[in-house]
């Protein structure tokens, strides 16, 4: 079983559309994991049935029981996150600022502060319209710990893949280089970097690849909107060569990409287009590389 992670550094490069196409092509051989839990969109293309759902708890937030509070102010003194305010002579926790460290609860002389576990989202295990199993999640608004939810989504997908002898896990990662991305990368066999020939695309590709290198994972790259800017396209190819990243394919700028999404389809399902062949060949190429 091989784990393939699709990331991009920069958002909006076509990462999810391409990942969903791979999921479509892989069909029953594949377990799909949507690890972009902040803005999970893959379900819009793969139409999962939400067969099984569970709440996900992570982290805590302090709560002050006003009956026990003697207003000594120790909680406010120790809090490094400005989460304790005095409103109408009462000590109140601002839950948006609270990091859940529990320091205040520890120093409260009357045990007036309790730490409440937070329901930060839901995890879903579904069957998609293509017949693959999909693990996805929905992080609660403003919730912390998306790295942990990502890890949970991945582990769940891994277990399902192992139990059912699936060949691949395909993971849609999140943008950026922070904790959710680190979580998606750990344990992967191959990384697909989706970028675009724009100054931002290249800039972000370089940063996210620095991270990939730390994990020592083999990588390949798909350049979306490849004909948008020839100069930057060449620079990206030079970067790939220098870093020994496999150039998988260039996908030309084509509004079919968006049109397919608008009707809830992956690119490979949507009519006849040049894009369809390129994405299909890319998937074959990736399978060859990691075999």
């Amino acid at each position: 079983m091989k784990e393939i992670v699709v990331i991009s550094g920069k958002g909006g490069t076509g990462k999810t559309s391409i990942t969903a196409s791979f999921a479509y092509l892989g069909g029953k051989d594949v377990v799909v994991a949507d690890c972009d839990v902040d803005a999970a969109d893959m379900h819009l293309l793969l139409q999962p049935d939400f067969a099984k759902s569970e709440d996900f708890y992570s982290g805590e937030i302090a709560e002050i029981n006003q009956n026990d509070c003697i207003k000594c102010g120790k909680c406010k003194d120790v809090c490094r996150f400005n989460a304790v305010s005095i409103i109408n002579q009462q000590y109140i926790i601002n839950s948006l600022n609270c990091e859940g460290c529990g320091y205040c609860a520890r120093v409260c002389p009357t045990n007036a502060i309790t730490m409440e576990e937070q329901n930060v989202g839901q995890l879903h295990i579904s069957n998609t319209k293509v017949g693959n199993t999909m693990v996805h999640a929905r992080l609660g608004i403003g919730a912390d710990n998306s790295g942990k939810l990502v890890a949970k989504v991945k582990n769940e997908a891994k277990q399902i893949a192992e139990k059912n002898n699936k060949d691949f896990i395909i993971i849609d990662g999140s943008p950026g280089v922070g904790c959710p991305v680190v979580s998606s990368l750990s344990g992967a066999d191959f990384v697909v970097l989706v970028t675009e020939p724009t100054v931002s695309g290249l800039h972000d590709l370089k940063r996210v690849y620095k991270l990939v290198k730390k994990f020592k994972i083999e990588a390949g790259c798909i350049i979306n909107k490849s004909d948008l800017n020839t100069q930057v396209f060449i620079e990206i190819k030079e970067f790939l060569k220098k870093e020994n990243i496999v150039y998988i394919a260039g996908v030309p700028y084509d509004e079919t990409f968006t049109k397919a999404m608008t009707v809830g389809q992956t690119i490979v399902e949507y009519g006849e287009s040049n894009l369809k062949d390129i994405i299909t060949e890319s998937w074959e190429k990736i399978k060859q590389i990691i075999d």
């Binding site: 958002g11 948006l96 992080l139 608004i141 403003g142 919730a143 912390d144 998306s146 943008p175 922070g178």
Partner: peptide
């Protein structure tokens, strides 16, 4: 601001 709806966005917009 950063993309998403989790802690970095809250920090940037609050």
């Amino acid at each position: 601001s950063p993309p998403g709806t989790s802690c970095p966005v809250i920090e940037a917009t609050k």
